[in-house]
Nucleic acid binder design. Structure first.
Lengths: 197, 197
DNA sequence: TATTAAAATCAACACGTTGTTCATAAAGGA
DNA sequence: TCCTTTATGAACAACGTGTTGATTTTAATA
């Protein structure tokens, strides 16, 4: 069927694109490269996408929508979740499992020749999940000083996201369960405690 | 003097490049754009740089070398420094003051159309400073689990770096002193404590 | 002031990529 | 079989690239 043929062409394009993106980055890669690598006519590419940026956008949008669908479901807390924690274990776990499922492309997006805009979107999604849970109380007294809310939010967020990004960049060696547990438990340790083991 | 003329040309190039980088990013910007914006002949650009990537490299290298010079000096701890802390207040302060001094270009490098490779280099420099101070003891017992050293290091690092990056991206409104103090003091709070003020 | 070397200009070059168009061919469902 | 969708192939003008060679400008210095 034509739908089948269509799918085959676009998935070949995605595959070639991922390889080229990983080895050269988006700037250095041309539509001609994609066409050559996919063994399709260059015109065929333009039948599906406006240009290489449009292709990148559409592939990322797939991931973003999937992640949103996974994380936006209102969770009734499962038995694993600690209601005091800022981020539900079960939701993080599901997100990590999805990352593993789409690993080839996500690893590339997060890697050296990847796209910081995707990382930013990913951060924003995690941020939304966290913010739902964080008490809406304003600033935190810090000795005689204030820790402004925007900085407090950023620190929280980066603690979670940096673990996930390191996991991906190392090749997702650990299981999603291990990482989810690590994230949950780390919430109760200060950097000073982490450093001076 | 000819040295003067040379400096004027390259600094005009840097200025135009910074503007274009901020508004389009490195991919979308051409050597022709730079030449037009700087009101120089395109050939003149190639008298100084191999291509736009070479220009980017050289501008970044300046910053990196300056930062290394600032941070590599072996500090005898100043009276402000707490010898127990993982990162010396006085060193961080000097780095932040330099960032403020070179703010226009650094803000661009760290911004939406900036270069993730620069952020990575910046992280690596901060990482080196931190690692000197962190106890070389291995893993940390975390309940019944271990927190692997690579993840512990990454969490420490991202806590510091994310504050600095947020500061830059917001336009460096706060003083370097405020940020340095924030970084130093935050080391003793867990994410959980930060969240539930 | 005249000389000289460095720095900048200008035009031209071949080349690759871009996005578009048009005519044609292949595929496969109705 | 017919018909629509999908893919092909060739050609197009436009633009950016990096390089060349001839020329002019600049400013230091002899």
């Amino acid at each position: 069927m034509s739908q089948q043929r269509h799918t085959e062409t676009t998935s070949k394009i995605k595959q070639t694109f991922t390889i080229l993106l990983k080895e050269k980055g988006l700037d250095a890669l041309s539509v001609s490269d994609i066409a050559r690598g996919s063994q399709i006519n260059r015109g065929t590419f333009y039948l599906h996408y406006l240009d290489k940026y449009d292709l990148m956008d559409k592939l990322q949008e797939e991931l973003i929508q999937d992640l949103l669908a996974i994380l936006d479901t209102d969770v009734e807390l499962s038995e694993m979740d600690n209601p005091l924690d800022i981020i539900p274990y079960s939701q993080i776990l599901k997100a990590l499992q999805y990352v593993k499922q789409e690993f080839t492309f996500i690893e590339t997006l997060v890697g050296e020749h990847g796209d910081p805009k995707f990382v930013a979107k990913f951060k924003a999604i995690i941020s939304a999940v966290i913010k739902e849970k964080v008490s809406h109380s304003s600033n935190l007294k810090l000795g005689t000083e204030h820790l402004p809310k925007d900085y407090a939010d950023e620190i929280l967020l980066s603690g979670v996201v940096s673990i996930i990004l390191l996991w991906i960049r190392k090749g997702a060696i650990e299981s999603p369960e291990q990482i989810a547990k690590m994230i949950t438990q780390t919430r109760f340790l200060s950097p000073s405690e982490i450093a001076h083991a």
